[in-house]
Amino acid sequence: MIIHLVAGGPTNLLPHLQAYDGEDVCWVGVDRGVLALLDAGIMPKRAFGDFDSIDEQELQQLKNKLPHIDIWPAEKDQTDTDIALDWALEQKATKIRLFGVTGGRLDHLFGNVQLLFKGKDGQIELIDRQNVVTLYRSGEHTVKNEGNYSYISFIPMTPIRALTLRGFKYPLNAHDIPLGSTLCVSNELIHHFGTFSFTEGILMMIRSKDEK
């Protein structure tokens, strides 16, 4: 099963959500993200949040429309997106995509990036109009050339030992990457697929495209 979580970030940064729909997809709204889903013509199967960003009339309409809505107190130890993600992980989803989690407040953005640590390699994706962000632990991983996302960057979340890039415009061979390095920003694939491997650390991969 694939679970898509749509949070309440700026809607102008959302990709076309219908393009990610499918029979094996479960849509979940997070706080104001429920409204973004309904505006896109998608009925979420569940909704989570304190819903402090919508008024009482909107909340009552959601209660009448949605099959499952979990309302949490505004004062709690997790963000709404974190709560929804924990539920998605409990469902043993093979892929979890987070939408509406970029833009606006930087504390929300960095908090949402931290949520990627909860998943297995590449299991959780953070997606907006121009970017797909995933995390990987040590080992060898394959990345396909998907055309739209021309640029691939690797950001060290911890010191990285022996990073090797094959099939890339700028290859590397067993190169150590310290925290704070920008060496692996804005690379590109030169074949249908490439590989990246490292022996120690946690690496963020960001696939990006320019705004047209």
Results as ranks from 00 to 15, higher is better:
Ala93Ser: 14
Met204Pro: 07
Pro10Gln: 04
Pro73Gly: 10
Leu14Ile: 00
Gly8Lys: 08
Val185Leu: 14
Ala7Tyr: 08
Asp86Thr: 09
Thr142Glu: 15
Arg207Ile: 05
Glu125Gln: 06
Leu37Asp: 03
Asp128Pro: 00
Leu135Asp: 08
Asn187Asp: 07
Pro171Gln: 07
Arg161His: 05
Asp21Val: 12
Thr102Lys: 02
Gln18Tyr: 10
Phe198Ala: 03
Arg161Thr: 03
Asn131Met: 05
Pro159Asn: 15
Arg97Ser: 14
His4Thr: 03
Leu203Gln: 06
Gly29Phe: 02
His141Trp: 03
Thr81Ala: 10
Met205Gly: 06
Ser53Phe: 13
His4Cys: 09
Arg129Phe: 12
Asp128Ile: 04
Lys169Cys: 07
Trp87Leu: 11
Gln114Trp: 01
Gly8Met: 08
Ile127Asp: 02
Gln114Phe: 05
Ile96Ala: 04
Asn145Ile: 04
Lys144Glu: 14
Ser53Lys: 02
Thr164Tyr: 01
Ala88Phe: 09
Gly22Lys: 15
Phe48Ser: 10
Gln18Glu: 13
Leu115Glu: 04
Leu13Gln: 11
Gly180Tyr: 07
Ile3Met: 06
Asp21Tyr: 09
Pro15Leu: 08
Ile206Asn: 07
Gln61Tyr: 10
Asp52Glu: 06
Lys144His: 14
Leu13Arg: 10
Ser150Ile: 15
Pro15Gly: 12
Met157His: 13
Ile54Val: 11
Gly104Ile: 14
Ile96Cys: 08
Ile124Asn: 04
Ala36Lys: 08
Met157Ile: 08
Ile155Asp: 02
His4Val: 00
Ser186Gly: 05
Lys45Gly: 15
Arg207Asp: 01
Asp210Pro: 01
Ile160Cys: 12
Ile42Glu: 09
Ser186Trp: 03
Ala7Lys: 15
Phe193Ser: 07
Glu75Arg: 07
Leu13His: 05
Gly201Val: 09
Asp31His: 01
